[in-house]
Nucleic acid binder design. Structure first.
Length: 576
RNA sequence: CGGGGCGUAGCGCAGUCCGGUAGCGCGCCUGCUUUGGGAGCAGGAUGUCGGAGGUUCAAAUCCUCUCGCCCCGACCA
């Protein structure tokens, strides 16, 4: 492709509404343009990157036995009413009406549509298992779209669904997809982790997110420094016993302290001239209509998902200010476990705290020297959000490291959440009607684009991994001598014959402009044919990642570069 | 949903307080020169000043309403 003929509108200045590197660079380098909040157009370069990703995804999924389909993007409301999600999904589901006032939704995901398809045409165990996927635009009317392609409202997603005769087979396929995703992201050249994830309200136990590691990621994940356990902090379990509970036999009885007007943890700690770690935090919640309290060390966060699971509650909300006043008998900020007539649940760490400060259930007062087991009792459980340094819950000695991640893939064991209400059933060997057991598997294609840039850029621009780059090589001419163009065209043809995708910058621009654009656009290999090439027959080969900057004889450059490209493309395909 | 910020040429911005009929840089077009890290000179094109209503002789500027975009928060007692 010739640069002069391609639409690559690069910008010297960043658009003012972009904050994160991927957004800034993808706009500046001419890959995307914003159309509305969270809605983007893909320009030719952006489209090429998307195609690269899609190709890898298709190859690996097809290889793993999945089949591609294309479902509609506009779903009739009754479909969603059948699964119950029309009521449950909320404002993220964009609803619309046609001219006859019939209601539709723009698909944010396609469980309903795929189930409707399969249940009508698959009635026998002989036709199972099935794994169907599509690559298609999705729409989610996000509360707050942000960070460019990272959290858009409209985005391209690969969504796949599998159907099985029983749970065992569904789990086998789950593993198959897990392995396939690992291959896909490895081939994309991304630094990622597969982490255990919270299954949310769908239930079930199996769920992994594929997280690309990047500081700008929205998700928080932890990985063990001793074993291979890694999980989203929403999910990460903690080791029960870490140290011995401190000896509190000499601790004086607890006593009130006057703390006028200080109710927030930091304020209380500052007022008492101590650390938040010495404070005991009491959080009042309403679980299915009944009050409960969670106790945590002052600097810790409650993991509501863990709490809800522990309680077996379907609804769990923080108590309102009025409820807090009524339950604790004090203003908000002065609740404590001592004498509180509410079921108490203490995080593992609370046991090991030693004498602590906590609210006195009396406005403007706290208690000091409060000891677990002596001054109050509570059920002890893993309740907090895992953080860096916390003890791994899967092995005996590991500690957690913390990372930020961008969720680019998610595999999920669904069970019969959809097949049951929507009656997606089959006849088994014995002639009995049974619901199919399902799994679902997603990859955010456009989010992979953003994640790759977040992970691979510098102050000059993008640095694509070879597998995702819109072109493998950019060929730049520097100088106006007629011989230079001729040489470049020969190299261009030679590379194309060898299957290398080349962007030939034939523009009538000064070399500086071409170099700046090449760096910004981020193509992995740059070949420069300049005046020097005319004199000594050498051209420059330089890698965008800085790993190579050398000169190669004109005659050899095509073979040298094409094998470099091939080698790199094959790196992730090992075992294929 | 709560709070904050911003909408002026394709992009980045000034002008708004204090009303007088729109400007700068980049980009774009033409010509000449230039050609290894975002060239120089000369000439040129480009605006419903987000929209609607109001005040006024006169509105980018003041008032009211509205739309859009960005950021922070939306459990932490």
């Amino acid at each position: 492709m010739r640069f002069s003929q391609m639409l690559i509108p690069t910008l010297k200045e960043a658009p003012s509404d972009a904050r994160v590197p991927s957004h800034v660079l993808l706009v500046r380098a001419g890959y995307i343009r914003q159309v509305a909040a969270g809605i983007f157009s893909l320009l030719p370069l952006g489209m090429r990157v998307v195609h690269r990703i899609e190709r890898i995804v298709r190859q690996e999924l097809n290889r793993a036995g999945a089949m591609e389909v294309l479902l509609p993007m506009v779903h009739p409301a009754p479909l969603w009413q059948e699964s119950g999600r029309w009521q449950v999904y909320g404002p993220q589901l964009l609803r619309l009406r046609d001219r006859k006032e019939f209601e539709f939704a723009l698909a944010p995901t396609a469980e309903e549509a795929i189930v409707a398809l399969v249940r009508d045409d698959v009635r026998s165990y002989r036709r199972l298992p099935l794994n169907l996927y599509q690559i298609q635009d999705k729409f989610r009317d996000e509360d707050r779209p942000r960070a460019g392609l990272m959290r858009g409202r409209e985005f391209i997603m690969k969504d796949g669904y599998s159907f099985h005769v029983d749970e065992e087979d569904a789990r086998r396929e789950y593993q198959n997809m897990y392995d396939t995703y690992t291959r896909i992201f490895r081939r994309c050249g991304l630094d990622f982790r597969a982490v255990e994830a919270d299954t949310g309200n769908i239930g079930g136990s199996l769920s992994h997110e594929f997280q690309v590691l990047a500081d700008t990621g929205e998700d928080s994940i932890v990985s063990c420094d001793a074993c291979d356990y890694a999980a989203n902090v929403e999910k990460a379990v903690l080791r029960r016993q870490v140290g011995e509970p401190p000896d509190t036999s000499a601790t004086p009885p607890c006593s009130p302290v006057h703390t006028p007007g200080v109710g927030r943890i930091e304020e209380v700690a500052a007022f008492l001239q101590t650390e938040p770690q010495r404070l005991l935090k009491t959080l009042l919640y309403i679980a299915d209509g009944k009050p409960v309290a969670a106790l945590l060390r002052g600097d810790r966060q409650l993991n509501e998902a863990k709490f809800r699971t522990l309680l077996g509650a379907s609804q769990l909300d923080p108590a309102s200010d009025a409820q807090v006043r009524q339950l604790s008998g004090a203003e908000v900020g002065f609740a404590g476990p001592v004498g509180l007539a509410v079921p108490l649940y203490a995080d593992l760490e609370v046991v090991e705290m030693g004498p602590a400060f906590c609210g006195a259930n009396r406005t403007d007062y706290h208690l000091q020297d409060v000891v677990f087991g002596r001054d109050y009792q509570a059920q002890v459980a893993d309740l907090r959000v895992a953080a860096a340094g916390d003890p791994c819950g899967r092995c005996e000695r590991g500690r957690y490291r913390h990372h930020r991640g961008i969720e680019v893939g998610h595999v999920f064991f669904l069970g019969t959440r959809y097949s049951e209400p929507m009656r997606c059933e089959f006849l088994d060997r014995e002639g009995r009607l049974r619901p199919m057991v399902m799994g679902c598997y997603g990859i955010g294609i456009t989010r992979v684009v953003a994640a790759a840039v977040e992970q691979n850029h510098d102050e000059h621009g993008i640095r694509w991994p070879m597998a995702l780059a819109p072109f493998h090589v950019i060929l730049v001419t520097a100088g106006l001598e007629p011989g230079i163009g001729e040489m470049a065209r020969r190299i261009y043809d030679d590379l194309q014959v060898r299957g290398v995708d080349v962007l030939y910058d034939d523009r009538d621009e000064r070399p500086g402009v071409k170099f700046k654009d090449a760096d910004l656009i981020g193509i992995p290999v740059r070949i420069t044919v300049g005046r020097k090439a005319l004199s000594d027959g050498m051209v420059e080969v330089r890698r965008r990642d800085g790993k190579l900057d050398t000169r190669v004889p004109l005659q050899e450059v095509a073979s040298v570069v094409s094998s470099m490209v091939q080698r790199e493309l094959e790196m992730g395909v090992a075992g294929a």
